[in-house]
Structure formats: C-alpha cells, structure tokens
Simulated assay, not measured.
Amino acid sequence: MAIFNLGSINADHVYRVPHLPEPGETLAASSFQIGLGGKGTNQSVAAAQAGSKVLHIGAVGADGRWAKEKLQSLSVDCQFVAEIETPTGHAIINVDDDAENAIVLFKGANFALDTAQVDAALEAASAGDTLLLQNETAHQAYAAELAKSRGMRVIYSAAPFSVEAVREVLPFVSMIAVNEIEAEQLCAALETDLNNLPVDEILVTRGAKGAEWRGNGKTETVESFKVTPVDTTAAGDTFAGYFAAGMDQGAGVAEALQLASAAAALKVTKAGAADAIPNRGAVEGFLADQA
C-alpha cells in the first residue's frame, strides 16, 4: 500500500515570544529560525517516519528547492512535487513560553499547482491506497473525487477550517480529521452533531485530553501521554500522519490511535515542525517505556 498526499509545502519562520501578541502589540522575539513545514509536509513526513511509502503531490518556487530536498531526505517521495514560478508558501509562527502557537500562512505555490499533477500522481495509485488532504492547497475536491473513483481511502484534515471547502470535498471523503475546535465549527456550520456528520469516519484530536475515532457505529478513544511540551506546532499533523500510516499498514483503529498519540507526544517535546517529527523506532521505544 501507499499514501499519496496532496499537501502544502511551507517555509516556517518561527519566532519564540514571551506570549502570543495581542492586537496592536509589538513583541521582541528571543529567537528565530527557518524550518520545513506546512500541514501537508508535516503529515507526509509523519507517515513516512511511521514506515509507510509516501508520495507527496505539491509545488514549490525556485526559492523552495531546499524544502523539496529536505522532504526527500526525510523519506518522502517527491517525484510529483513541481517547481513553478510562484514563490513557495510560508508561515509566520509565534511560539510562546507555554508552547502554544499562533500561525499566519502565505499560500504561494500551494495554490498554483496544476490539476495535471494530480492526474499524473493518482494514475500511479491503486485501490486501497490512501489520499491525504488538508485545506492548504488547490484542487482538494478534484483530487478527492478522483481518488474515490479509483477505490482509494480519502482522509481530509479540515484545517485551516473553511465550511465552503468542507462542503465541497465531503461527498468524496472516507474520514475527516479535526481538532476539538474545528469539530465544533464543523457541526455548527452543517447544523448537526458528530454522530450525524455525512462521512463514514471522523477523527477528533483533543490535545491533552487525547483523541477519539468514530465509525461504523463504533467509538475508540485514546488518552494523551504526559510529557513536558516545548512546541505544539505540528502535533495534530503528526497524529494524523501516524494514524494514516497505521491504517495503511493494516493496524486496527485502537493500535493506530495509540501509535499516533505516542508520536504526537514525542513531537511536542521538541521545537520545530517536520524536522522534529519522531521516527517509528523512537515512538515504539517510547511506548515500551510506558508499559
């Protein structure tokens, strides 16, 4: 099996600040660094570090060649990542002393890729493969419909949240992944509750309160692991990528949730995004230490 990910590729500009800025406030950052990020990138790296074959579908500008090379070094297949004239997407990330973050995104090349890239990538997919999607690229509904027609499992992370984007893609989705706030927004926008969302499966991450999966009339939950957080950036993406990889590799829902929870716990103990996502060996070692 394989995981295809139509996902964003961003340069993360990370600023450490004493607290998240209020409107009109100017803050002095205590540190600054540039790293590889984007929800799509993070999920691809997480799934690849979990041991799945991952093919990323996306685009960078000439300024983003380093990002493509970094993705490849983290075991992600980038044959379907194009270099185009539009600048690479980037994010401005403020991280405070409590490890909470606030993020501003520039879409860039993530919204300028061509549908021909999607066609070429999914032509290489087989029934039973997985397509990951997030709300940070163009052509989500197009890719989801094509993937569904090919018998693929379609997992959609509804973030950054947009009810219009959700409505467009939902008919083709196997599983929707949201955090607690996004779940509330989704249910309010669709005037329903989690039990009646028109999708086969739903995954809700609740930070320190763990996560919950619902599907086929069943519910599975997992508690979060107690760690000292350093940076919560990409924690949800790490969870989603590891969960997708677990399912791709034939794990049951409970096992995939446990694996994903451990990976997310380890991630928040390190600063950064894609570079800080743990590999499978580290996650399994962490789990063994909890037993």
Rank of each mutant, 00 (worst) to 15 (best):
A127N: 11
L131W: 06
W213T: 02
L74D: 06
E25F: 09
Q185R: 15
K148E: 11
G207M: 03
F225C: 04
L170R: 07
N135E: 08
A188V: 13
I92R: 05
G210I: 10
T41V: 10
A245K: 07
L71Q: 05
I92V: 13
A263M: 02
A2Y: 09
G51Q: 13
A127G: 15
K107C: 07
E164T: 12
I84R: 04
Y156G: 01
T137L: 08
M1P: 03
G108S: 11
P198I: 11
S162G: 13
N5E: 14
F172D: 02
A67T: 08
K68T: 04
P171T: 08
A262N: 03
A116W: 11
V45H: 09
K39V: 06
K267G: 05
L131V: 10
N101G: 08
L203C: 04
R214V: 05
K270Q: 09
V54L: 10
Q43R: 04
S73M: 11
V54I: 05
A143L: 07
A29S: 15
A264E: 03
I103N: 01
A159T: 05
L287E: 07
K267R: 05
W213Y: 14
A211K: 11
D129K: 02
K270A: 04
M152N: 10
A82W: 07
E255A: 12
Q140H: 13
A91H: 01
G128N: 10
D193R: 12
K53S: 13
W213A: 03
A282C: 12
G24I: 10
A260C: 12
A262S: 04
I181H: 15
E182F: 03
A59G: 03
A143C: 09
A291R: 09
A177H: 01
K53T: 13
F80N: 05
G210M: 14
D200F: 01
V283A: 02
K218H: 02
Q185T: 12
T130Y: 14
Q117M: 11
M247R: 12
V163M: 14
I92Q: 07
V95S: 09
T232K: 05
A235V: 04
A251F: 14
E212R: 13
G35Y: 04
V230E: 03
A273V: 00
T233Q: 03
A158V: 06
I181D: 10
F161K: 01
K270R: 15
A260I: 03
S174N: 02
V17Y: 09
V283P: 00
I181E: 14
G89Y: 02
V268E: 02
D77L: 03
V227P: 01
E182P: 01
R206M: 15
H13C: 02
E83Q: 14
E145R: 11
T269Q: 12
